[in-house]
C-alpha cells in the first residue's frame, strides 16, 4: 500500500537547516498495523505527516497504492487524502464549535455523502464508540477519552484504507488509552491499515510491526507478529 524510496524532508529557516527525514525507505502492506517509535525529534511525526499527505517530501519518492504522491499538488493530494486516509491526533483536534455528531460527520460533507447515509453512519459509529449519549455535546464538555473516541470515529467515518495516528494515547490516562488502542486494534482486525506514532512500547505492541527511528533514519524494524 505504501512504499517510499529515499524519502527526505528538510526544514529550512534563515540560518538553520534541519533534516527531519534522511533517505527513509519504508513499505507498509495493506492490513498491517505499524508502530513508529523513537526519541523526540527523530522524525517520526514528520514521516507520519508526509505519508499522510499533509506535508510534502523535499526529495525521494512516495508511492501510495502504486501511485507517486510526493509531487502532486495540494489539490490532488487533498483528493487522495479525503477518500483514503483517516487521522487521529494526540491533541484530538476536534472543532470546538461543532458538536460530537457534527465533528464525526465533517469528513463525509467533503466527500459529498448524502444526508441520510451520513446520519446512519455517524449514529452507527457513535453507538460503537459508546458516545451516543454525548451526540449534542461540544468537545470542551467531554473527557479526554471521549474526545479521542470522537476523533477516532471521525477518522474512520469515511471507511479509509489507512489510519494515521499521531500519539493517539499521549493525552490520555491509561484506562482511556487502553480503550482507544483496543478500538484501533479492532479496526485493524476489520482490515484497516494503521500507521501509528507512539512513545509507548505498550501501545506499540498492539501492532504487528515496530519501526524504530533515530535522527531522521529508520534504524530497526521488528516484526511482533505476522499479520494475516
Amino acid at each position: 500500500m505504501i512504499r517510499t524510496n529515499k524519502l527526505v524532508k528538510v526544514y529550512r529557516t534563515d540560518e538553520v537547516q534541519t533534516t527531519a527525514l534522511n533517505a527513509v525507505d519504508v513499505s507498509i502492506a495493506e492490513g498491517e498495523f505499524v508502530a513508529v517509535m523513537g526519541p523526540s525529534g527523530c522524525g517520526k511525526s514528520t514521516l507520519l505527516n508526509v505519508l499522510g499527505m499533509i506535508d510534502s517530501p523535499s526529495s525521494g519518492e512516495y508511492f501510495f497504492n502504486g501511485e507517486e504522491i510526493g509531487k502532486l499538488p495540494e489539490r490532488k493530494r487533498s483528493d487522495v487524502r479525503k477518500h483514503n486516509l483517516g487521522f487521529v491526533f494526540q491533541s484530538f483536534n476536534l472543532i470546538d464549535e461543532l458538536t460530537v455528531y457534527e465533528n464525526i460527520e465533517l469528513p463525509m460533507l467533503y466527500t459529498k455523502v448524502p444526508a441520510a447515509q451520513r446520519k446512519k453512519r455517524v449514529e452507527e459509529l457513535m453507538e460503537g464508540m459508546n458516545i451516543m449519549h454525548r451526540r449534542n455535546h461540544f468537545p470542551q464538555q467531554l473527557s479526554g477519552g471521549q474526545q479521542q473516541r470522537v476523533a477516532v470515529a471521525r477518522a474512520v467515518v469515511n471507511k479509509p484504507k489507512l489510519i494515521l495516528a499521531d500519539e493517539p494515547t499521549g493525552n490520555l490516562d491509561s484506562q482511556n488509552g487502553d480503550e482507544v488502542m483496543k478500538i484501533l486494534a479492532d479496526l485493524n482486525a476489520e482490515g484497516t491499515t494503521i500507521l501509528m506514532v507512539t512513545h509507548s512500547q505498550y501501545c506499540a505492541e498492539f501492532g504487528n510491526r515496530i519501526i524504530r527511528m533515530l535522527d531522521g533514519q529508520v534504524v530497526t524494524e521488528n516484526v511482533i507478529r505476522q499479520y494475516l
Binding site: I54, S78, N93, L94, I95, D96, L106, P107, Y110
Partner: peptide
C-alpha cells in the same frame, strides 16, 4: 487556524 487545518486534513478544498 486549527479548525481550518482539521477541515483541510479531512478533505476540505480551498474553495470550501
Amino acid at each position: 487556524a486549527k479548525e481550518i487545518g482539521v477541515r483541510k486534513v479531512f478533505g476540505a478544498a480551498k474553495k470550501d
